[in-house]
């Protein structure tokens, strides 16, 4: 009890000094969420005993040596570096009022990625890093921009790149019923069957990672978010520059099971991203990567 009291007092003090972010950092993980994380990660560790925790971030490429060689070959000369550089430039260019994106966030740019999605207690909802960037623009008198691809994805990719090696730490604050409800909703979205093909996220990415759907190897859900936004060959071929955020990917998955994609940056996907990212807590951000 004593330690809990001290933590609360400390959290309150930091809260006064450092604002919301410090307060969130001091917040403790809800024990039921931590139990979920442990069970989730142990399931994958048992299923693939030869893989280390961080190996799971390589998705389908962690499942076969042949695929891994292809991946390594592409990553030797990443086809997306120019766009990440553009993202950096955009991130560092001040708004017309002279302020920068960084001014909206406390703490180092380098670790921004690791704490998102984050519970925003003032708004009473989950906030993704992409949404926080858009909010920052609006707060500084700039226009909203799309959250699926393009400029926002490049900036987000830049933030993922500089966070390489930093450890994911998404928190569902202990004793916060609203935050826990959002997390539980995300969990439900993950495990519920949807669409004409009647498939849940978990059906493929928990029950069958490493197996193939036609020629495509299914990735494990653990570590799926360590490298987003990704540059996909498929997206580059279709239209656009190849970059997409995790929520763009959710939309693609939903379409593939013939379900109606949810709206990006609304509760359903934000809560899903909250759950999905928390499950990879403790893993390192692996930087922006190529995917098929």
């Amino acid at each position: 009890m004593k330690t809990t009291k001290t933590t609360i007092v400390l959290a309150a003090l930091f809260g006064l000094v450092g604002g919301m972010t410090t307060n969130a950092l001091a917040a403790q993980q809800d024990p039921s969420v931590q139990a979920d994380i442990n069970a989730f990660q142990n399931y994958f560790k048992n299923k693939f005993q030869h893989l280390s925790l961080n190996d799971f971030s390589k998705g389908p490429y962690a499942m076969s040596e042949d695929k891994r060689l292809q991946f390594d070959a592409i990553m030797e000369f990443p086809p997306f570096e120019d766009l990440v550089d553009k993202g950096e430039e955009l991130w560092k260019t001040p708004f017309r009022n002279g302020k920068t994106y960084s001014s909206c966030f406390s703490g180092s740019d380098k670790t921004l990625r690791t704490a998102y999605p984050k519970w925003n207690s003032a708004k009473g909802k989950v906030e993704t890093l992409e949404q926080a960037i858009v909010n920052c623009r609006v707060k500084n008198g700039e226009k909203k921009i799309g959250t699926g691809k393009g400029k926002l994805a490049w900036m987000s990719a830049y933030l993922t790149g500089i966070a390489t090696g930093e450890v994911i730490n998404v928190i569902v604050p202990k004793g916060n019923a609203k935050a826990l409800a959002a997390y539980e909703q995300g969990k439900k979205e993950f495990y519920a069957k949807r669409g004409q093909l009647n498939l849940s996220c978990a059906n493929c990415h928990v029950d069958n990672p490493g197996q193939r759907i036609r020629g495509n190897t299914l990735s494990p859900a653990l570590g799926q978010i360590t490298h987003f936004p990704v540059w996909r060959g498929k997206w580059a071929k279709k239209k656009g520059d190849g970059f997409g955020t995790i929520q763009r990917r959710y939309g693609g998955c939903n379409k593939q099971v013939r379900a109606k994609p949810r709206k990006r940056q609304k509760a359903a996907y934000n809560n899903l991203e909250y759950f999905h990212t928390a499950m990879s807590n403790g893993m390192e951000i692996s930087g922006t990567e190529y995917r098929e």
């Binding site: 069958n208 193939r212 036609r214």
Partner: peptide, 22 residues
């Protein structure tokens, strides 16, 4: 057909190309 039964998505069928194995 990939847009109909797409049985090969998950099942091996004799003579069928690129089957899945779910």
């Amino acid at each position: 057909s990939r847009r109909h039964g797409n049985c090969l998505g998950c099942h091996q069928i004799q003579k069928g190309a690129q089957p899945g194995n779910v």
